[in-house]
Design a protein around this nucleic acid. Sequence first.
DNA 1: ACAACTTCTCTACAATGTAGACTTTACCCG
DNA 2: CGGGTAAAGTCTACATTGTAGAGAAGTTGT
Lengths: 237, 237
Amino acid sequence: MSPQKDPTDKALPRKRERLTRELVLSAALRLVDAEGLDALTMRRLGQELGRDPMGLYRYAANRAELLDGVSELVLDELAITPDAPDWQAQLRRIAHDLRLLALRHPNVVPLLVTRPLSTPLGLRPLGTLRPLEQILSLLIDAGFAPADALHVYRAYYGYLYGHILNELQELIVDPDENEALLRLGLHRLPPKEFPRLRALAPVLATYDGAAELDQGISILLSGLSAHLSPPGSQPLG
Amino acid sequence: MSPQKDPTDKALPRKRERLTRELVLSAALRLVDAEGLDALTMRRLGQELGRDPMGLYRYAANRAELLDGVSELVLDELAITPDAPDWQAQLRRIAHDLRLLALRHPNVVPLLVTRPLSTPLGLRPLGTLRPLEQILSLLIDAGFAPADALHVYRAYYGYLYGHILNELQELIVDPDENEALLRLGLHRLPPKEFPRLRALAPVLATYDGAAELDQGISILLSGLSAHLSPPGSQPLG
DNA sequence: ACAACTTCTCTACAATGTAGACTTTACCCG
DNA sequence: CGGGTAAAGTCTACATTGTAGAGAAGTTGT
């Protein structure tokens, strides 16, 4: 068990490259992606990095901050660039991007949704506020009055998060099963109490999340630009 | 410290009334409402009920099931009765009811949102599926084809949950402060990076959640009945 | 080469969920 | 009644968690 420290070890820093916040956080993210949130303990993460767990406190003051860091890291994957023709197209693209992001990191979604509930807006990690700022900017640049931009943002982001949660919640229990009721575990529900839900099993089992999102966004955007000020005209409150 | 057991104790079951699942769960809910989710530990709950913590396992197999129970209990407060004139009015009322419910139990909202993510649809506590079933029923009765009812439900509930999360996230840090930037803790944000957000501080500080929700619901509902089959006509997929 | 500082490691502790054995209570049937 | 069966409640014990605090090892500037 004794690692027999050789003085020439220093010359070849094989496993002993210096730790950085990014290294720690991305290891944490990898762990969460692979084994879920509960697997992310200080000890386990330390082990994953071949370091003493206590060392991690140099890069995140406590576990909560570690979780915030993971949220931030994930949201950094979301690129909000003013590239599309109009604001509607941009919001639509961002929506799909965020959806894919969520599907790529489903175990992180609870964090994205939950952490802000216990952290007042101004005290959140900057990385998690950046999308908000950028979308506001996008809308204002497109001609919305700032207050209207905020309204649009709220409706848009609200729906978007809601959709993502919905989609992740409609999980397939046993994909190998070919009976829809069984695939979803719905067979357990008392038929008298849940006739509609049970009858919809086949529809539930073939959920096209992207299409559903797209349609919802369409409805919302057209509704919004009707009720609020479209990019050219003047605001309305 | 010895409670001097008197044989006539049975006659006056002062503190020793029998525990029930409802008693346990409502004590748990009270605790969560008052002190947050973290305060809900087995030991603490036992203490609150004047019982040994271990006894609680008779009413909830483990902590996760306890949390599910609390979710269920809260959702039971939501009454979905076919009382309003049309489906749109009903959905609107339910939305406001759920919003108020969330404001009454803000600490439970993370549960409502998070627990279903780790429990496949069919295995959830029945109480949490009942709203889904009832809304489906409401829509189908109103003339929607079942598959369309599901689409409407998804868009509606998605937006609704998103709005609630949004609203709870826009929290006032220090209500006594009269400078909007300070009240929201936004003064911490680097002005160069977050000009829009900072400029919107006054608007953020005066958030009328009910109005915003109502408007969003209007947009969504009118959009939905245009894109899908309105109550009379035939479905469209 | 020494000193100041950062980074890493070890040991230790309080709090948590929960298993398992035991004791007490409630209820039922002869 | 009275004793026996099951339910409800309690106690003790343990593994796992986050993290404080002291110290060792390594790095850097002079």
